[in-house]
Each structure stands twice: as C-alpha cells, then as structure tokens.
C-alpha cells in the first residue's frame, strides 16, 4: 500500500474527500445528464486529459511545446488507419499509436534538448514538426491524403472496437483523465518529478546537483507525447474522421495548451479547472452568438475572456480558487 500512501501523501483530507465526491458524481453523470450536457462534459474531460499531458512538459519540466497536435494527430491516424485498413481494433492499435508518438516526441526532444534550443526556439521546432507532418499526411494515400480518413459510423456498442454511443466514449475519456491525474500526482511525488521542477526553475543549478537534465527532459516529452497520442486515438474514434488540416493544425496545438495555462501551470488541478472554465465559456458564447446573430462574436468574447483571466490571474485560476476554498494545493 506504500504506493497509495505516497499518492495521498500530505494531501489534506478535504482534497481527498472532494476528489472522491467528484469521481462519484462523474461516474453517475451519464444517468443524470441529457445528450447535450453529456457532450459538454466529454469535451471538458478531453481537454482536462490533453491539458494534463501537455502540463507534464510545460508545467513540470518547463519546456514549451506548441506542436502537441503532432502527437494527437499521429496517434489518431495510426489507430484509425490500422482499424479501417486491417480491422485491428484500437485497444491493440493504441500501442502502435503510443509508440509512434513516443518516437516522434523523442526525435523532437533530442533535436531540441541536445542542441540546447530553449524557450521560444524550442517551441518553434515543435511547431515545425507538427506542420511538416501535416504536409506529409496531405500526401499519404494510406492515411487518406488531404481528403481525410473516415471510420464507419456505428453506434451499436462494441467495446472491443471502441464503437458505440457517447456514453461509452464518456467513460473512456473519464478513465483517461482520472488515470492521467493519478499518474501526474505520482510523477510529481517522485524523484523524476522533483528533477523536472528543478530543471524548470534552473537547469544549470539542477545539473550541478546531479540532475541528468537531458535524460529527464527526454522522459518528459516521451510521456507527454504518449499520453497525447491516447487522446488522439480517442478523438479519432469519437469523431470518426480525420483530416490533416485539422488533426495537425496549429489551432489544435494551441487549444491543448489553454486549459493548463488558464487553470494554472504546473498544478494538478489546473488543467481540470481550466477545461471546465474554457468549455463552459465556449458553450455560453456559442449560444450568445446564436442569440445575437452576429457572426464571429463567439471568438471575440472568448478571446476577451481569456485576456481578462490571464491579466487578473496570471498564475492561473486554480491557485486563486484553491486559496478561496481553503484547499491550498501545496506548491512543491
């Protein structure tokens, strides 16, 4: 049980109770919610999950990736391609998807970290890889080229092939989000996690106290890429279609970063809080835009809302919220 003990560690009982209640509520949610709210909740969990994955790199290890669509896209395409061409189900296909994304992450990471590209220069490298992968997929027949790759829509529940309605996808993404949360907590409470934080704060000082900086950064990008690939697989089977123009789009990479930035970089609850707020705002502004009948008003309000949050809560919403709730997540 030492693993469980390490996980709960010095977390306050209030946090543990809140988490337990939240989990129960999420488990019974599909029985309470209608179709619309379930689809909103699915979006929230998706962004919480990919946000958690991206946060490992930026929030923990301090490495800015603006090309995470690369890993999601690769993961989705590989699993979907294997299924549509050879009938290999996603539970097997995800291993190939995770492996491919892990290798891609390792290549990007090695080029960036080995040659000491830092900050925005590293970010540019991640964008470049994502962009030229997009171009490559535009011309790759196996993946459907620019015309896209489609999965046959089938809502009869078939867990083996991840075919079914929203409820199935809800539980899968809930499991992923919860799993990523636990994994990130375990990582933070380990030597590796502390080494990441040290690298984020000052890589030179970290190396002087024995932190193998390159290796730690490589592990961060590979774990982050692998988790993001899982999100990509889920995404492909949920939406049943993939286009290079959207799967590897810059906008896709940016939206992955928003939840942790808005919620609080480097915190465990940040990506979750950020995903709730961002998805909520998105829905509200969509309704508002329809009611007002002004095209594009959604994007303007959304952008303004982000601006206000980042201006007034630059460390993210969660640290402030936790303080208000008396649930202070001890900043390690």
């Amino acid at each position: 049980m030492s693993f469980v003990k390490r996980l709960t560690g010095d977390a306050s009982p209030r946090i543990l109770w809140s988490l337990g209640i939240l989990l129960v509520l999420l488990l019974v949610a599909p029985m309470m919610l209608g179709k619309y709210w379930l689809s909103v909740l699915i979006l929230v969990l998706y962004f919480a999950f990919v946000g958690q994955a991206w946060n490992i790199m930026m929030g923990f290890a301090g490495q800015l990736s603006l090309g995470h669509a690369l890993y999601a896209g690769l993961g989705g395409y590989i699993a979907a391609g294997l299924y549509s061409h050879y009938g290999i189900g996603p539970w097997a296909g995800l291993f190939a998807a995770v492996a491919a994304a892990g290798v891609a992450g390792a290549i990007v990471g090695y080029l960036g970290f080995r040659f000491s590209l830092a900050g925005v220069y590293f970010a540019l490298l991640t964008i470049a890889f994502s962009e030229f992968t997009r171009v490559a997929f535009d011309h790759w027949e196996w993946a459907g080229g620019s015309g896209g790759l489609f999965l046959k829509v089938d809502t009869t529940t078939d867990i083996v092939n991840l075919r079914g309605g929203p409820v199935l996808f809800y539980y899968v993404i809930l499991a992923l989000a919860a799993g990523a949360f636990v994994l990130c907590r375990a990582l933070l409470e380990s030597r590796l996690g502390r080494y990441w934080l040290a690298i984020r704060e000052d890589a030179e000082a970290a190396q002087a106290v024995g932190v193998p900086v390159l290796r730690c950064k490589m592990i961060a990008i590979v774990i982050s890429a692998a988790l993001t690939a899982l999100a990509g697989v889920w995404n492909a089977f949920y939406y049943n279609n993939l286009f290079p123009e959207t799967a590897f789009a810059m906008g896709r990479s940016i939206e992955i970063t928003l939840a942790p930035i808005i919620g609080g970089l480097g915190t465990l609850f940040g990506p979750i809080v950020g995903a709730v707020v961002l998805t909520g705002l998105g829905e509200i502004f969509t309704d508002l835009g329809e009611a007002l009948r002004i095209p594009g008003i959604k994007q303007i309000f959304y952008g303004l809302a982000l601006l206000v949050i980042v201006m007034y809560r630059p460390a993210g919403l969660w640290p402030w919220l936790a303080d208000k709730l008396g649930l202070k997540e001890r900043q390690p």
Binding site: R194, L197, R200, E201, D202, E204, A205, P332
Partner: peptide
Amino acid sequence: VKPFKGLSVLENVTVG
C-alpha cells in the same frame, strides 16, 4: 546564486 526560485527552501535542498 541560482536558487530554484519557485520551490520552497526545503524543496530546493531536497532536490540535492
């Protein structure tokens, strides 16, 4: 000096 600024004093030394 190069402290890990965003970490507590204890966590700084813990990394070592």
